[in-house]
């Protein structure tokens, strides 16, 4: 279980990206974070695995405070939490299989791994992961030869290699077309349901939110302004919507959101 307590992030330039945010994530949830661009979604997700240093607050992960972890203990926490990125963040010039194997780096011996030597069970696991996302035939290709959808599937396979208890996904489908978006979120849903891995995912489109989330939180200007179940989000009122997306925001139709702010 993950519990965020009074999390605040102030960037070096003084931007207050998160203001005293507190919430809980139960094991097995598919938690979606919504909010306008700049509301602090990425900041929140990156604080959880400490790609960004939180300024204040606690991040309790099964009772231990991630915010205070460092060195080895931080790496041990990180390997339990997979991450998927909007721009995939694959190592472009490396092969697909190397990208997938790099998900094991937190487990294997550092010295043999830097020589690209991985235990054979890890190699098998890597093929299994690629099989799960349906791209075993691409294993030997260079990562940048793949299409966007395929690259994101490699990203998922890499996260799965960590044998994670939770996966953080920062706008995993924002650079993909709607069909691919459903396919990628479908994989995340499978992972969530079948392997009982908690998912924390930021999304921009309300129809996707409604379809995949089990619970939703909304951020606005770094404040937590909304918390609701899947049922709640399906019958979200205009007032709640405006609370998250601002007064000028207009709901174009049941699904998509048109923000009044930038983007």
């Amino acid at each position: 279980m993950l519990e965020i307590r009074n999390l605040t992030k102030i960037y070096d330039d003084g931007t207050k990206a998160l203001k005293n945010v507190s919430f809980k994530v139960e094991d097995g949830e598919f938690l979606v974070i919504i909010g306008l661009s700049g509301s602090g979604k990425s900041t929140l997700l990156r604080c959880i695995n400490r790609l960004i240093e939180p300024t204040e607050g606690e991040i309790l992960w099964n009772g231990k405070d991630i915010a205070k972890a460092d060195g080895r203990s931080l790496r041990e926490v990180r390997r339990q939490i997979g991450m998927i990125f909007q721009h995939f963040n694959l190592v472009k010039r490396s092969s697909v299989i190397t990208n997938v194997l790099s998900g094991r780096l937190g487990y294997v011996s550092p010295w043999s791994s830097i020589l690209h030597h991985f235990p054979s069970e890890d190699r098998k696991r890597a093929y299994d992961a690629l099989e799960m996302v349906g791209i075993t035939d691409q294993a030997a290709k260079r990562a940048d030869e793949l299409s966007g959808g395929q690259q994101q599937r490699v990203g998922i396979a890499r996260a799965l290699m960590q044998d994670p208890s939770m996966i953080l996904a920062d706008e995993p489908v924002a650079s993909l077309d709607p069909v691919l978006a459903h396919s990628i979120l479908g994989y995340l849903e499978d992972i969530n349901k079948q392997r009982d891995i908690t998912i924390m995912c930021s999304l921009h489109y309300l129809d996707l939110v409604q379809q995949y989330s089990s619970r939703v939180i909304g951020l606005r200007d770094g404040n937590l302004v909304y918390e609701g179940s899947n049922a709640d989000i399906r019958k979200m009122t205009d007032d709640e919507f405006k609370e998250i997306y601002g007064k000028e925001a207009v709901r174009v139709n049941a699904g998509s959101i048109s923000g009044g702010a930038d983007e």
Binding site: R75, R79, M83, H87, N89, R104, Y107
Partner: peptide, 10 residues
């Protein structure tokens, strides 16, 4: 990006 991704694996 890839550096963050690799760091995130532990």
């Amino acid at each position: 990006g890839p550096i963050e991704a690799i760091q995130a694996t532990g």
